[in-house]
């Protein structure tokens, strides 16, 4: 259990979050004493973090400055490429780790069939609201998520549909070999969902490790710099794109299409502009989604089977 871990934090101008959350992480890495790596990728495109981090955390944190603001997915790949450890832990700047969170993750990754793991990610530290603890299903032709209430007494690893992008561990080489997150879903949201569903459909597993706990102060990063309506549009567009990418049966496609057609009609009659805009944004990416879908290749599990296997309440 002494595998080294490369921790990568893609960051915008999140100095206040880093000042609050990095010390806890450094303490954890030092306690583990496995020569782990800690890298912050400055994705502001303006080199805002290097000097500040050097002053605050001298010799503890490596800072990689990107020349442009490429977004979370690109920044993560940048940090991963420059790492050397076998395991890659991706963290958001607004994630606050709790002591002892790292070792259980490393232990869980010992199983080669495990594709990725996430700690139990508590939204704003609320023990009853774990962002990782959810299931996904297709309801009325639409891909939806259902949050589940975590069992505080359960310490066994649980299957989950996807590792939470803001706190996930993968094998670094494997992640890079797969090309990281799908650029179809840029700028943000649902990249991790796609990663998890792909892993499950390839016969692998994604686990939540309840023994490992972190806190997520949600949208502490994007929500501060992007208006809510843009964020929502990205979420709803990508929900459709991910579904289109993973639709794998004619019947499911037909059901989804009818549902979408009905919703479009209803939004048009009801003049619900935002819903129409979300659909239009997704439909503009239809060709890219088709290409991404073709890139998946053959799968071991159907989407339905993957969703069932990934249901933590099962």
């Amino acid at each position: 259990m002494n595998q080294r871990v490369a921790v990568v934090i893609p960051a915008l101008d999140d100095r206040d979050l880093l000042a609050k959350n990095l010390p806890l992480l450094i303490e954890e890495l030092e306690a583990r004493a496995c020569d782990d790596e800690l890298t912050v990728v400055d994705d502001t495109g303006q080199d805002l973090l290097a000097a500040w981090i050097a002053e605050r955390f001298p010799g503890k944190v490596r800072v990689i400055v990107r020349g442009d603001c490429g977004g979370f997915a690109k920044a993560l790949v940048t940090g991963a490429r420059l790492g050397t450890a076998e395991l890659l832990l991706c963290l958001n700047p607004d994630v606050r780790v709790r002591p002892g969170f790292l070792s259980p993750l490393v232990e869980a990754m010992a199983d080669p069939n495990v594709h990725s793991v996430s700690p139990r990610v508590l939204l704003n530290g609320d023990p009853n609201h774990a962002e990782t603890h959810q299931r996904m299903l297709v309801d009325g032709g639409r891909l939806i998520s259902q949050p589940l209430t975590p069992d505080p007494d359960c310490s066994d690893p649980l299957p989950i549909p996807f590792p939470l992008g803001g706190a996930m561990m993968v094998r670094r080489e494997e992640f890079l070999a797969e090309g990281g997150f799908d650029p179809l879903l840029a700028p943000f949201y649902f990249e991790d969902t796609d990663l998890g569903l792909t892993a499950w459909r390839r016969g692998r597993k994604v686990l939540e490790i309840p023994a490992s706990v972190v806190e997520h102060h949600h949208r502490g990063t994007i929500g501060r710099v992007v208006p809510d309506n843009i964020v929502r549009a990205a979420i709803e567009r990508n929900r459709l794109l991910v579904h289109w990418k993973h639709l794998d049966s004619k019947a499911a496609a037909h059901e989804h299409y009818l549902s979408l057609y009905r919703d479009a009609l209803d939004a048009g009659i009801g003049e619900r502009r935002e819903e129409l805009i979300w659909m239009a944004l997704a439909l503009e990416e239809l060709e890219a989604a088709t290409a991404s879908r073709i890139g998946l290749g053959s799968m071991q599990r159907s989407l339905d089977a993957a969703l069932v296997a990934a249901d933590p309440s099962r």
């Binding site: 977004g71 700028p187 943000f188 979408l260 057609y261 479009a264 048009g268 502009r273 944004l281």
Partner: peptide
């Protein structure tokens, strides 16, 4: 953030259209 700008521009472009034009685009896309 520069990474968000392309998406935000697409959003703004669609948001500037009359509702029926967006609806028409959605129908064509469907």
């Amino acid at each position: 953030p520069a990474s968000v700008e392309p998406f935000a521009k697409r959003f703004a472009a669609l948001d500037a259209l009359p509702t029926r034009d967006i609806f028409e685009r959605v129908q064509r896309g469907l």
